[in-house]
Design a binder for these strands. Sequence first.
DNA 1: GTCTATACTTGGATAGAC
DNA 2: GTCTATCCAAGTATAGAC
Lengths: 206, 206
Amino acid sequence: MTKTAQGAKKKGWRKAEIIAAAAECFMERGYHATKVDDVAARLGATKGRIYHHYSSKTDLFFDVHREGMARLFAAQAAVVCRGGARDRLIAMLQAHAEAMLTHHTYETVVAQGVQVHRFDQTTPEERETMADLIATRDEFEGLFKSALDAAIAAGEVTPREVSISVKMMLGALQWTLVWYRPRDGETEAERADLARRMVASVIAGV
Amino acid sequence: MTKTAQGAKKKGWRKAEIIAAAAECFMERGYHATKVDDVAARLGATKGRIYHHYSSKTDLFFDVHREGMARLFAAQAAVVCRGGARDRLIAMLQAHAEAMLTHHTYETVVAQGVQVHRFDQTTPEERETMADLIATRDEFEGLFKSALDAAIAAGEVTPREVSISVKMMLGALQWTLVWYRPRDGETEAERADLARRMVASVIAGV
DNA sequence: GTCTATACTTGGATAGAC
DNA sequence: GTCTATCCAAGTATAGAC
């Protein structure tokens, strides 16, 4: 590893600490109710530390949002499936459900998303960042539309409105942000099991 | 109508105006980002008017929340179904989907719900109010659990975990709060049609 | 019952010491 | 790179006129 890469990583580590603390605060109380002092306090520091790395609370929020989206994409990138197109879609749903439970803290912030800043006074740079975040979300939803399209094309799923169906499937899984709170000491296996039962319910219908 | 009932209705009308304006503001920007001045401005008034009827912004929020829940229950109360238990469940889902679209403004506030105040300094009275609101939500979810139970008992639906299934069904419909925005001039028929397509997707599964 | 004017608090952001 | 001290803007709530 080069000297500069080491430097970048070290700097990234400090930021990652701040991002993690901010994610917890934003998750618990929401963006607007969270004070920069709250984030600092969670780190056992003062806000001088935050403002050394971030020029504003908004900037910090954007980084938490990016991390949340990155984790969702990472979960999808890790999906492997030997079966057909329908099996692949199900595996993707399963991975997404697990990701929503595991990265609950970050995904709650993603859900607050751009909405939080839509009506605020924003600088041109902030507007550009917001456009990027929205594009990234659309891209993510696109992964599932493609997978459902493929399953329909393969004759493995009854044809139906793809756009609506994907919104319903993802909505069902993402609503966990409202009702699910991780228990202390919950294992990965328990989360995977809950995710399985959720996905089974979604694909079964009524 | 008695004199006192007339009086109560008149007073209620003034409050209803404020509640409607507050719902729009809370929907657009969220509770914390909404200033009492914003609500007043939307009424073409100043905040003196708000504080004459409500002792705090929190109190106003609770009234908006109550109105949102009342509309959800009203939609369910209006459900009539001649068919079996499964048909009845589907009719309930349809009514709920339409309600979520039609009363989008209020239901967005309901979704912000108690979460917004969970970590705030609250008075004993506020905590009592919050407990009431939570109980009301649980009661609402209970309507759907009972309906699904009945459909399973009647052999019209494949047995499955009722609690999880209801959370997935309602989650799929409620996630509309995140992606749906009513278009100007959208008709009730168009909303009903969208609701139908949503419910069809949910009950069909994958 | 609503307005204007204002008191008071909170909280984002900065400056300069260490 | 982080802390302490501080500035200043924003926003909740109140007092008193009309």
